[in-house]
Simulated scan of single mutants.
Amino acid sequence: MRLLRNRPTPPAPAEPGDALATAEGLHVRLGSREVLQGIDVTVRAGEVLALVGPNGAGKSTLLGALAADVAAVGGVVRIHGRPAAEWSSAELALRRAVLPQSASLSFPFAVEDVVRMGRAPWAAVAPDDDDRAVAEAMRQTEVAAFASRPFGALSGGERARVALARVLAQRAPLLLLDEPTAALDLRHQELVLRVCRERARAGDAVVVVLHDLGLAAAYAHRVAVLRAGRVAADGAPEEVFDGRLLSEVYDQPVEVFPHPRTGALLVNPERRNL
C-alpha cells in the first residue's frame, strides 16, 4: 500500500513589521561554553537586521539558532510565530533560507545547477516557477555570465555569489546570511547589500552577519550589537552606533561621524601614530 504524505504548505504573505523570527531568552551551549546568554531579538518583515560584534561574540551561533540549525538549551526560537522545533524540515525550507560562511561541493556541478538546488523545497509545490526564480537570482548576483562553468573552477568571491544566488532562488521570506560579503570585492559587497535591501523592500526579512560596520550603518534598518553572548544594543544604526559603546565592545577606539557631504553615518577605527 502506498502511503500519502502531506505536502508542505507555503507561508502566507507577511505584512510589513510581522515577526518572522524571534529569539526569547535564548541560551545556547557549544561544548562546555555558553555561547548565547539570554538573547532576545525579533526579525521583522520588511527590514534588514545586521548582527555585528567582535569575533566570538555569538553572531553566527545566533544566526544558526534563528535558522533552527543550532539547538537551544534555554529559551525559545519562533519562526513565523511557531516554535522552530514544531516545523518539519520541508516546512522550514519554505520559510527560511540560510547562507553559511563557506560553500563547498564534492561534485563538479555547473553554476546554474548549484543555483537550481535552491528550488528543491518547491518541487512538490510550485515547480513551474523554477526557471524564472533561478534566472532572477543569477541576474541579481551577476553570475549568469558563467552559468555553465563548474562551481569548483570559480574564485572564492564568485563561489560566494553563486551560493547567495542559490539562497535567493529558494524564495523564502526569511533570509539568514552569514558574512555574505567576506570574500567579495568592493563592488560586489555593495551589490550584495543592495540585494538585501531589495528583498526587504519586497517584504522579506533579512538577517545578515557583518564585520564591516560601515556597511551595516549604510544598509541595515536595524543593528544588534553582540558582546560575549549578549545583546549590548539593538536599534537603528544612528541610535546604537555610538563611539563609546563600539570602542568598549571591540576593545578598539572607534569614531562615528556624519559624512561631510551627505550626512550619512560613517564608522571607522581610530588610527593614530601612522
Rank of each mutant, 00 (worst) to 15 (best):
A14F: 15
A19L: 09
T9A: 10
R95W: 05
A57F: 12
T22M: 13
L265D: 04
V48G: 01
R78N: 10
V125I: 15
V207G: 10
A12F: 14
E255N: 07
P258Q: 11
V206W: 00
L177A: 01
A135I: 09
R5F: 14
M138P: 02
R149V: 12
V125C: 13
G235Y: 15
A264H: 06
L36W: 11
D113Q: 15
Q37V: 09
D185C: 06
V225T: 07
F146T: 00
T262K: 11
V28A: 08
A45V: 09
P100V: 08
D251W: 07
A93F: 15
Q37K: 15
R171W: 07
I39Q: 04
D242H: 13
R166L: 02
L274D: 03
S104K: 13
S89I: 11
G263N: 11
Q170E: 09
V73C: 06
E190D: 08
L246H: 04
L26W: 05
V209P: 10
A50I: 04
R78A: 06
D40L: 10
V267E: 00
E91N: 09
A19T: 07
P10R: 12
T141D: 01
G58K: 07
G17F: 14
V111E: 06
V114F: 14
H188D: 03
G38E: 04
E239P: 02
T9Y: 05
D185E: 06
H211R: 04
G118K: 00
L92H: 08
L154W: 14
L266V: 12
L265M: 06
D130H: 14
T181W: 12
V192P: 09
L49E: 01
V206R: 03
S155T: 10
V207E: 04
R159K: 13
L226S: 10
L176N: 03
D178C: 11
L154T: 10
F107M: 06
V195Q: 03
M117R: 06
L20A: 01
E270M: 14
N273C: 06
A137D: 05
R139G: 02
A12N: 05
F146P: 00
D130G: 02
P253D: 09
L92M: 10
L62R: 02
G74H: 12
Q189H: 11
A126P: 01
D131P: 08
A85D: 10
R199H: 06
A23L: 14
L215Q: 05
R199T: 00
V267I: 07
M1K: 08
A264L: 08
G243V: 14
A165F: 04
E179H: 05
W122M: 04
R244M: 01
R272T: 08
A57H: 13
L193K: 02
R199S: 00
F241E: 03
I39R: 01
G46M: 15
E112R: 15
Q189K: 12
G56Q: 12
D251M: 08
H259C: 02
L168V: 10
L36R: 03
L175G: 03
A93N: 11
V206G: 01
V223T: 05
A23G: 12
A90R: 15
A144I: 07
A67E: 03
T61D: 02
A182L: 11
